[in-house]
Amino acid sequence: MIKMLVPLGVFVGLVVLLLISLPTAEQRRQVSSPLVGREVPTFSLPGLHDPGVSRSTVDFRGQPFILNVWGSWCFSCRVEHPYIERLGREAGVPLVGFNWRDEREDALEWLDQFGDAWTVHMVDVEGRAAIDLGVYGAPETFLIDHRGIIRHKHIGPVDEEIYADLIERIEQMRVEAGT
């Protein structure tokens, strides 16, 4: 009789084990970027409106800034765009657009249509700088502090809740920077 209970015990034990491991899968997603807490990689890229001008990530040193990865081919970027516009208006720090693997004409047309919320753009046509940033999908939003340390990375579109979280983190970074 006891022997017949063993399969049931194995079954219950397995279900409990698997259910316990579900939340940790959620946590693994949260810490998905090993770059958080490290210095933003240094790279120079041309602008979008001004392809002749080259900007480096070092140029923003001294104040916090937001780096937002987008592309005209990216549908979720349209979804998050109202919040990106709000970030541009209300965050009080530079909002740098990282135009990833896009065609210049498409990107400019997209900005005409949806509005250019960004302070300035950096254009990565070949995607090499994106690899250094550990980008694997657009949109992605990085928060970088005045010392050039990546403090936070959000993967996926920004919504109301994420927006509030980002603003709170930016406030904190501004306090630290003393701006």
Binding site: L22, A25, E26, R29, S32, G71, W73, C74, F75, S76, V79, W100, R101, D102, G127, Y136, G137, A138, P139, E140, I155, G156, P157
Partner: peptide
């Protein structure tokens, strides 16, 4: 159901 990056898209 757990998706590593919900809502993101890669070029192409």
């Amino acid at each position: 159901q757990s998706d590593p990056a919900p809502g993101t898209q890669s070029p192409g």
